[in-house]
Design a protein around this nucleic acid. Structure first.
Length: 854
RNA sequence: GGGCCGUUAGCUCAGUUGGCUAGAGCACUUGCAUGACGCGCAAGGGGUCGGGGGUUCGAGUCCCUCACGGCCCACCA
């Protein structure tokens, strides 16, 4: 027992044990195990675009608790870690940190020295390969920072199993996945109206949009009706008037019913547009009749598609109005010269500038009615964007969605923890529109495995892609050459052009389970780990990551990518304000919290966040966790100091009913904690364990203390030692998923190997040791002792105060249980005489020894 | 506008199929150095279980309804 320190402490346990676990390969995955012996986790790859905050630590801790539990249940846990280095946010971060921006037209500069954090200086343009290199460097540093933090938090990740969402393996899987979908016509290339961020110059998917309430203005414009009568139309986007292709009203709206099928003429531009009916038109909005433009919003796209309208686009990718010639095909006007004159005022301007100008033009021509009316309305933005999204037509790659019934069936097949999170998925599936645009006009990301032929006149046919061979993957179209072509033909007439875009983040991360399981390059691993057991993730990305992953596995594997989805809540500030961004040294910076409270304490706090429930950021709970960890150290020191035996489990030595009773109590706890963990309810497992542990310390340890030291002879002492050893082992194991450092520390005092590789406790084994003893012996004895303590406390006397006599009144059954532990009660309470009286209700009379006169 | 979750002590939360005087921790009060722990131990005060109906012998627990908070979604005229 020499290994037990005199003054156990939590200080430094993180550094000690993470190094030891690393050296011993404690969490190394054993890929020789069969599928049934493996528990595989599709860990969320944290994006390296931002700082980790305490919310990340919290949800990853939840996953680690489950991983540790499964490992102790005997599963070999496949617990990899990925890094999401894909996406616009990474590019923005790299731009900020290196002071550069990507200009694909520039050549590679092998000696590039990025200026670093630019402050107010203009970013330096660099080539695409240079920019990609810089992305790689920034990511490497961030990955290292994340690794440090995750390790210190005790995450039992196998660090030999890491992956990136940009890299050969992810690229290979993403490209293969797309080629296979294209072959089955489940993906396609098309020119299509697309939501477009004019600042980032890229398409944005439905899932990345958000509505923001911003101010707008209603303008009331005069169209000419079929008889030349004025037809007043209200709009917030007057600058799109030249793009107007129809007017629309609700089919049941009597005011406009007579006009359906007739034509109206647009003000300023004299374009004849049909007056049409559609159920989406809202009679209560504006004047009840709306102009359809190509395109002002997603409803315009719906109308345009469903009503088969003309296409007259004016907004180009940079958010400015493009030049057009009125009078040419598609741009008919009753007065082309006037239309052209008016349009020249708008062409080249931004949407906002054009709006201001056209309002003036309309007013000068007396084509408006009344003053513009300010309103506040929801407008679609890219979630990180600063200007409203526009809709432009461009060439994009799309993946078709499976039919909704099939998707809903997959949702039912999946086990959701908690179950109600399924509803979010179902709502999202129900609201799907169009197909999934997987194209982003960015530089850093997974390239498409495609090129386009250039005809003899130098025109690129963007709708006739030349696809890479599957065997050649991964490819980079900007440096690799398509089958049947030579490098000299790049960007030449009669040659080819590379696809210039990269894939949407989700086109890659929707294959995270396949990527990490070795779908493309390790069929043996894939067979052992896929479909995976668990996808842990946050609820706000059910509609993206989870949904897209289900779509991909449905197509590619005709099944689910995992059996279980554990959805975590998010962390909120007790003041209901948003948590600070933890830019460093903020009170909620995980590194600072680790320093202050220790990893076990933070994990304890995190464990309070039940699956799917939000959790308050609460340092007070971290203090509680820290005390619990210290208590574990001290209680263990005491138990082991009495000679608690590693020969625990010797049923013959358990002579004392109190000891067996305690083990019966513990058996019930093990059963409950196990059932809770099987439901991914780590929070309940901890809560029950913790509650029993404190009672164990306050009551059982006090009751057994003197006997354990030998006051009642060797037989009683042996019973206590066996019970204490068994209980300690059991409790440490129950705490191990939550407090990996403190429990491992104690384990090292008396056992070999790692507690995290030791088998989970067995309720039946404990019940056998308890030999059907009544678990309430401990409770009855503790209740009696509690009354004695109360008497001492109320008399303001020390707990060591001798008690002359105690009279316990209780039912015969309970008195019989008390009798089983009466000597321990007398000893713990310093009671000289303990009498029992049969009665209806529990009552205790305590006669303290008089205080010594001072 | 639709959906989901929540509303239990000052704070953070338990309360499993409705059942004996509603629990824990923190905080607070009062004590106690007790052969593990003063980062400790003991005791104590503190709640019309968001409001209103209903079902029931009995409801924090089931049903209806309203309010508030949060989240997700939705069609920018």
């Amino acid at each position: 027992m020499s290994r037990i320190p005199n003054k156990p402490s939590l200080e430094g346990l993180e550094a000690t044990w993470r190094a030891r676990w690393e050296a011993d390969g404690t969490y190394r995955f054993d890929r020789t195990k069969a599928r049934a012996e493996i528990f595989s986790i599709d860990t969320p790859p944290p994006t390296v675009s931002g700082n980790l905050h305490i919310g990340h630590a919290c949800s990853y801790a939840h996953t680690d608790m489950v991983a540790r539990y499964q490992r102790m249940r005997g599963k070999d846990v496949f617990y990899p870690m990925g890094w999401d280095d894909n996406g616009l946010n990474v590019e923005r971060r790299v731009q900020l940190l290196t002071g550069t921006r990507c200009d694909p037209s520039l050549p590679y500069d092998p000696d590039l020295q990025p200026p670093g954090q630019p402050g107010k200086a203009r970013p330096v343009p660099v080539s695409r390969p240079n920019f990609q290199e810089l992305c790689g460097q920034v990511i490497e540093q961030l990955e290292h920072d994340y690794f440090e933090l995750w390790s210190n938090l005790g995450f039992s990740v196998d660090w030999t199993q890491t992956y990136r969402t940009v890299g050969p393996r992810a690229t290979h899987a993403s490209q293969l996945g797309l080629l296979r979908l294209l072959r089955r016509d489940l993906a396609y290339r098309a020119e299509s109206p697309t939501l477009w961020d004019v600042d980032m110059q890229t398409a944005v998917a439905q899932a990345e949009m958000q509505d923001r309430e911003i101010p707008g203005t209603y303008h009331r414009l005069r169209f000419d009706g079929p008889n030349g009568d004025p037809l007043w139309v209200e709009t917030t986007r007057p600058e799109l008037l030249p793009a107007c292709v129809a007017l629309v009203a609700h089919p049941d709206d009597d005011r406009f019913r007579p006009l359906f099928g007739a034509k109206a003429v647009t003000p300023l531009f004299g374009a004849e547009v049909p007056i049409v009916a559609h159920g989406l038109a809202d009679p209560d909005k504006g004047s009840g009749i709306a102009m359809i433009c190509t395109f002002g919003d997603t409803t315009d796209v719906t109308w345009w598609r469903e009503l088969g309208l003309d296409l007259r686009t004016v907004v180009q990718r940079d958010g400015r109005l493009r030049p057009v010639t009125w009078g040419e095909p598609g741009w008919a006007s009753t007065d082309p010269a006037a239309a052209q004159r008016h349009y020249e005022e708008l062409a080249g301007r931004t949407v906002a500038q054009a709006q201001a100008r056209i309002v003036e033009l309309l007013a000068e021509a007396s084509l408006t009615d009344g003053e513009p009316r300010p309103i506040t309305h929801p407008v679609k933005f890219w979630e990180n964007g600063s200007r409203p999204l526009e809709i432009v037509t461009s060439h994009q790659w799309f993946i078709r969605y499976p039919d909704k019934d099939a998707l809903l069936a997959r949702g039912k097949e999946l086990a959701w923890w908690p179950d109600f999170m399924r509803v979010r998925y179902e709502n999202w599936v129900g609201g799907l529109q169009g197909d999934w645009n997987i194209t982003r006009q960015r530089f850093f990301g997974v390239p498409f495995p495609a090129w386009y032929p250039i005809d003899g006149d130098g025109n690129v046919d963007y709708l006739a892609p030349i696809l890479a061979d599957e065997a050649s993957l991964p490819v980079d179209a900007t440096t690799d050459v398509p089958p049947g072509y030579a490098e000299e033909q790049r960007n030449r007439a009669g040659g080819f052009a590379a696809d210039p875009d990269v894939m949407d983040t989700w086109a890659t991360s929707s294959l995270s389970a396949q990527i990490v399981s070795g779908w493309v390059d390790d069929p043996d691993l894939f067979a052992r780990t896929f479909p995976m057991d668990l996808r842990p993730q946050a609820h706000e990305i059910i509609r993206t990551w989870l949904f897209y992953s289900v779509v991909r596995a449905h197509y590619e594997h005709d099944g689910l990518p995992w059996a279980n989805a554990a959805i975590s809540g998010f962390v909120f500030d007790p003041d209901r304000k948003k948590l600070s961004k933890s830019a460093g040294n903020a009170p909620d910076d995980p590194a600072v919290l680790l320093e202050t409270y220790g990893a076990d304490a933070i994990r304890y706090w995190a464990a309070g966040g039940r699956p799917g429930m939000d959790l308050a950021f609460d340092p007070a709970q971290m203090k509680v966790g820290r005390r619990l960890a210290i208590k574990v150290l001290n209680a263990s020191r005491f138990a082991l100091g009495t000679g608690a035996d590693t020969a625990a489990g010797d049923a013959g030595s358990l002579t004392e009913p109190l000891d067996r009773s305690m083990l019966a109590w513990l058996a019930d706890l093990v059963a409950e904690a196990t059932a809770a963990f099987d439901r991914f309810d780590y929070a309940r497992a901890l809560e029950r364990t913790e509650a029993l542990f404190w009672s164990f310390c306050d009551d059982y340890l006090e009751l057994v203390k003197n006997r354990a030291y030998g006051s009642a002879g060797e037989v009683g002492q042996a019973s206590a030692r066996t019970a204490l050893g068994t209980a300690l082992e059991t409790l440490l194991k129950l705490f191990a998923p939550f407090l990996p450092f403190a429990t491992e520390e104690v384990w090292s005092w008396w056992r070999g190997g790692s507690i995290h590789r030791a088998p989970w406790p067995d309720a039946d084994g404990l019940r056998a040791l308890a030999a059907a003893e009544d678990p309430t012996v401990v409770a009855v004895a503790a209740a009696t002792l509690g009354e004695v303590r109360r008497a001492k406390s109320e008399a303001k006397r020390s707990m060591r105060t001798p008690v002359a006599s105690v009279t316990v009144t209780d039912t015969p059954d309970r008195l019989a249980l008390l009798q089983q532990a009466v000597e321990d009660v007398r000893s713990a309470g310093h009671i000289t005489e303990l009498r029992t009286v049969e009665g209806e209700a529990f009552a205790v009379e305590v006669e303290l020894q008089p205080a010594e006169p001072r």
